[in-house]
Design a protein around this nucleic acid. Structure first.
Length: 470
RNA sequence: GGCCACGUGGCGGAGUGGUUACGCAGCGGAUUGCAAAUCCGCGUACUCCGGUUCAAUUCCGGACGUGGCCUCCA
């Protein structure tokens, strides 16, 4: 099989580029993960899903053992401290923080799994990489890219001539905004914190610059270096992270290592709105992933992870999305169509996905065009052409979708035996032309949420299959 | 105020300097005891105003609208 050429949009150059890994035997991708202080909302789900799709594609193209995907867990942050103090005021701070971060991290991992995302190769925690961050800060100071002032260590943006490349901003633009509070101890208003001192009631680690904690940007520089190297292939995250977070990561990593690039390709997913409005707690349209999976927060009912995944991927990853009930319904109907068409196929994990679907994804993750190709395969499967059914099933699995999640029920659900006996009783009634009895059985099952579909099997005999009604 | 995206038929959504995807919903037909599912067929849309061009939804300029960043927010 020929290896498809990947093309990816690079924020750094504002254009689509052919992708060539630094080392095809170890393709390396870093994505900014969650700060674990609260439930992840539906907007947080987008990068999880988008970069999972890219991870799957990279594994397909370069081999599953030749891709390293790191997604961090930020477990040191002032919002976490605030949450810990609020929720566990009676516990020692460190214990309270641990409660908050462990619980939130477990919730995030369970959400990601429900969304069909593979585990990243590595999920490093910030608190396990404090020494690496300190080493990086030390080398920035040594190279005169950072300085101490008022108990903080700050990055000196003026020391980096091409600071601002990713976001297309220059220091003058930032000044023009004039909304950055000019702090007297900074050489330049755009200088940002690498290390800050902690008060006794704040979490802290000993360091050459006193007991303190890292700034927000330094952790990603430290962890990506540790796990992926000083320069790697792809760095991803949400659009909002371009500035300042990713800009500052680049500044830290390149200046600390004296490299020309931190990552070759920078990818950013678009934002989403909910029912046409910006998602916010005050508008009452703030929905978490967990709300969608387990409550009636949208549309008065719960939605399975597969449906959320498709609803998210229906739109190209760089475009804005209006997340709505109608969108969820459409995704659900589409996925049910595919699952019906793939029904009964036996697939194994390694079975190859359809080449045309892969080719569409290879063009900057054009999932929508891939889904058009899937529709085409589904149509062939419904007409029983060739191996279309198997191909469809293998491709759905490759894309991270369940094969019968909408037709039966949640994983682990077992078909009650009475369904099979009711169906055979109905078939017997039908063969006796006792339609009243047959319809009574059908109605009875319908009330239990089971809908029936009659068809002719390969011998031309009447047969019936069932699925869950949603 | 500065910078940056986006604006396609009822809805979703790709793409293209001229032949005008595709899906959902809707309509018609086939099939079915009736349904459901499935199959076949049917829709000439590209915010507005200028400009470039033989030709613009597609390129350029402007307007309007929506959103993002400039505030450790995906």
């Amino acid at each position: 099989m020929t290896t498809p050429q990947l093309t990816l949009y690079n924020t750094l150059t504002r254009s689509k580029e052919a992708f060539t890994p630094l080392d095809a035997s170890n393709v390396r991708m870093y994505v900014c993960g969650p700060t674990v202080y609260d439930f992840a909302h539906i907007g947080n789900a987008r990068p999880v899903i988008v970069f999972d799709l890219l991870f799957r594609l990279l594994r397909h193209v370069y081999g599953a053992d030749h891709v390293t995907y790191a997604r961090n867990i930020t477990d040191v942050d002032d919002k976490i401290n605030a949450r810990a103090l609020r929720d566990f005021p009676d516990l020692p701070l460190n214990e309270a923080i641990r409660r908050v971060t462990e619980k939130t991290e477990a919730q995030f991992l369970s959400d990601a799994k429900a969304l069909g995302a593979l585990d990243p190769t590595i999920q490093p925690r910030a608190t396990d990489n404090i020494a690496e961050m300190q080493a990086l800060i030390g080398s920035l100071i040594q190279r005169s890219h950072a300085y101490s002032a008022a108990g903080e260590v700050l990055f000196d943006v003026k020391s980096m001539p091409d600071y601002g490349q990713l976001s297309g901003r220059n220091l003058e633009d930032n000044l023009a905004g004039a909304r950055i509070a000019v702090e007297a101890h900074k050489k330049n208003p755009a200088d940002f914190v690498l290390w800050k001192q902690s008060a006794d009631n704040e979490p802290g680690w000993d360091s050459p610059w006193g007991r303190g904690r890292p700034g927000w940007h330094i952790e990603c520089s430290a962890m990506s270096e540790r796990y992926l190297g000083q320069t790697f292939d792809i760095h991803g995250g949400g659009l909002d992270l371009i500035f300042p977070h990713h800009e500052n990561e680049i500044a830290q990593s390149r200046c600390a290592h004296g490299t020309h690039a931190m990552a070759n390709v920078w990818m950013h997913n678009g934002f989403l709105q909910v029912e046409g409005r910006k998602m916010s707690k005050s508008l009452g349209n703030f929905v978490t992933i967990n709300d969608l999976l387990e409550t009636g927060a949208m549309g008065g009912r719960a939605w399975i992870g597969d449906v959320l995944r498709l609803a998210m991927l229906m739109t190209h990853y760089r475009e804005p999305i209006d997340f709505s009930v109608r969108r969820l319904e459409e995704a659900e109907a589409k996925l049910a169509d595919w699952q019906r068409a793939a029904r009964g196929a036996e697939v194994n994990d390694g079975d190859a996905p359809d080449a045309s679907v892969v080719a569409e994804l290879a063009d900057d993750l054009n999932f929508h065009r891939a889904s058009v190709a899937l529709d085409f395969i589904a149509k062939k499967a419904n007409r029983n052409e060739g191996n279309a059914k198997h191909c469809l099933a293998a491709t759905l699995r490759f894309l991270g979708f369940g094969l019968d999640s909408l037709l039966t029920s949640d994983d682990g659900w077992e078909e009650p035996p009475h369904i099979a006996s009711a169906i055979s009783a109905r078939l017997e009634a039908l063969n006796n032309k006792d339609f009243a009895k047959a319809d009574a059985i059908r109605n009875d099952l319908a009330e239990q949420g089971i809908s029936l579909m009659d068809y002719k099997d390969e011998q031309g005999q009447r047969a019936t299959r069932w699925e869950m009604k949603r």
